[in-house]
Write a protein that binds this DNA or RNA. Sequence first.
DNA 1: TCGCATTCTTGACATCATGTCAAATACATT
DNA 2: AATGTATTTGACATGATGTCAAGAATGCGA
Lengths: 208, 208
Amino acid sequence: MRPREFDNDDVLRIALDRFWRNGVRGTSLSDIARDAGVQRGSLYNAFGSKEALFLRAYERYAGDYVGAVQAALGAGSLRKRLTAFFDLTITNFRSGTPPRGCPTTRGLMELGSAEGEGLDEDARWAFADLVTRITGLVEDALAAGAKRGEFSGAPEAAALHIVTVTRGLAVLERAFGDEAQLRKIAAHTIDLVLGKKSRQAEPRSHER
Amino acid sequence: MRPREFDNDDVLRIALDRFWRNGVRGTSLSDIARDAGVQRGSLYNAFGSKEALFLRAYERYAGDYVGAVQAALGAGSLRKRLTAFFDLTITNFRSGTPPRGCPTTRGLMELGSAEGEGLDEDARWAFADLVTRITGLVEDALAAGAKRGEFSGAPEAAALHIVTVTRGLAVLERAFGDEAQLRKIAAHTIDLVLGKKSRQAEPRSHER
DNA sequence: TCGCATTCTTGACATCATGTCAAATACATT
DNA sequence: AATGTATTTGACATGATGTCAAGAATGCGA
């Protein structure tokens, strides 16, 4: 058989870059084909559709992100772990120029449900899977912290709460583009969950 | 001059319905024109572009939503107010069949940044404005609660945290479609912010 | 009452997107 | 070297956004 003239992973990296910067709606397969030096038809042959290509590219991203979260949550005091987790997440949202935001949140909102039939199942699965895995990792960190007396509470509810906040941060990033604001919310969340040992709150600083 | 053959507000209502159910990407001006019994060209004449039409329709929605939030946050104990606020928000996300989700979050992620140039300023403003106004209302409720001794803390930070959680709920709604989960997170958030007076936590109930 | 300016409507058109297909192509295997 | 097979390539169909010019309908002044 005839060998493929491009590297599959190269294309996925290039596609993720475009999708992340411009969104699914704002990216055409012609763009990606040009960037990758590949014919548009070859992309259809290799991946099937724009959505399928995005999903493949997204899965690479998700794997990397989960790995990084695991590393961030794996060492130090519970407060250090959570701080590292939020730090990683916010830095991720703010990477690129201009900042690219959160591909999970954006992809979830952009994909599927084009004709009244609900969100495409593959897509929903991909995004839900990431949220579930991150929640699990946070839960583990909280459970470990509980064993060491750093956390008293239900790790499940707290983990879900924390991950919900990270999703909210993704939305606020898009609305305000104010990184300092995101970091303030993150710090406040950690204080709430951990019981605000140490750390005094700065008065008057909620910007629009 | 020749009078317009359709009611402007009718079209905005019809457009919002489509946009809310199917998203901006999933709705064509032909759809809206058919629904409204209007020529597609007339929509361009009256509104300029699909995005502009969406923004106009969205502004109507935003006004209604802010009004409802104001009502929900205006009476009863602080806990009751916050409960009513979350209740309203989640019910809003879950309205329609299938549930339509949060138009703010979805619109924010779908619009703009098509060619590397950041999010369209009008769009960003519309969404940011809603978040800002809601945050302000929550802040007022917390400040009032603080006066009555129901809340001790910085209303600004707490309000922003609460609103961030509602944005996160919008994302999780889309990912899992599990209303009970959303309500659980909301209850937990209220407990965290208010200090968990009363209410025992149910163990083992974090579903994927 | 008539005509005119102004706005709205309508259909044609240009452009670009996704997605399909058949024919040409180039390698791997025998 | 011949052949099978997957890939490439360009043409095509469809549908979306957005523009434009010409026609239509009304309000208003003469």
